[in-house]
C-alpha cells in the first residue's frame, strides 16, 4: 500500500529497493504468528545508496540495542517472515558472534547485500541481526533452500565479507525446520 520510492537522477540506484524492519520479542509471552506479525515495525525504505545512508545514519548500532531485539533488512515486497511467499521454500545461514563483533559484521553484511556482492541472482531475500544475552546472531535468508550451489556461494561470501575464521559457527536452517 506504500507508494513507490522515488529516486532523483543524482542518486546511485540500487539493484533492489529494501525495507528495514524492527522487532522486539515481548518477554513472558508465547510467540505466535499474529503477535510476531504485529511486533514487526517498518522503520523505513530506500532504493538508492544515498537513501540508505540517510536512513542508516539515524539508526543505533546493533550493539546498542537491548536484548531480544532485531533489525530485518529485506527486499521490498518480501516480509521478514517464514510464511511470506518468497520465503516458504527458503532457508537462512546463521552466524553466531561473540559480543563486540555484531555492529561491524552487520554493516559489512548489508553493504555486501546492497552492493550485490553475493552473486546469486534473485536468491537473496534479506538479512537479520538479532541481539541476545550472551551472543549475537546475523542471518542471511535466501529463497531456495534446496539450491546447494546458491547456499554454498552465500556461505563463502559471508566468510569473505565478515572475515570469519574457518572455526566460526555457521549453520544453515530451512524455514521448514523452523516452522516445524
Amino acid at each position: 500500500s506504500l507508494p513507490p520510492i522515488e529516486i532523483s537522477p543524482n542518486e546511485h540506484k540500487l539493484q533492489y529497493a529494501y525495507a528495514l524492519w524492527y522487532s522486539r520479542r515481548s518477554s513472558g509471552k508465547q510467540p505466535n504468528i499474529q503477535s510476531y506479525d504485529q511486533n514487526l515495525k517498518l522503520v523505513g525504505r530506500f532504493a538508492s545508496v544515498e537513501q540508505f545512508w540517510s536512513l542508516y545514519s539515524h539508526l543505533v548500532r546493533p550493539s546498542e540495542l537491548t536484548t531480544s531485539t532485531h533489525f530485518h533488512l529485506f527486499k521490498v515486497g518480501i516480509k521478514p517472515m517464514w510464511e511470506d511467499e518468497a520465503n516458504q521454500k527458503g532457508g537462512k545461514w546463521i552466524v553466531r558472534l561473540r559480543k563486540g563483533l555484531v555492529s561491524r559484521c552487520w554493516e559489512n553484511l548489508i553493504l555486501a547485500m546492497l552492493g550485490e556482492q553475493f552473486m546469486v541472482g534473485e536468491e537473496i531475500c534479506g538479512a537479520v541481526v538479532s541481539i541476545r544475552f550472551q551472543e549475537d546472531v546475523i542471518c542471511v535468508w535466501n529463497k531456495t533452500a534446496s539450491d546447494y550451489a546458491t547456499t554454498a556461494r552465500i556461505r563463502d561470501t559471508l566468510r569473505r565479507v565478515l572475515h570469519l575464521p574457518a572455526s566460526a559457527s555457521m549453520e544453515y536452517k530451512t524455514h521448514n525446520e523452523s516452522l516445524k
Binding site: 532523483s8 542518486e11 540500487l14 539493484q15 544515498e50 545514519s57 553493504l111 546492497l114 552492493g115 550485490e116
Partner: peptide, 21 residues
C-alpha cells in the same frame, strides 16, 4: 542481464556525500 554492483569502498565513500547528508 546486467546487475548494479557496488564495491564496499564505493558505498562507504558516498556515506558523507552532500546528497546522503
Amino acid at each position: 542481464g546486467t546487475r548494479i554492483v557496488y564495491e564496499r569502498d564505493f558505498l562507504m565513500n558516498l556515506r558523507n556525500s552532500p546528497i546522503s547528508k
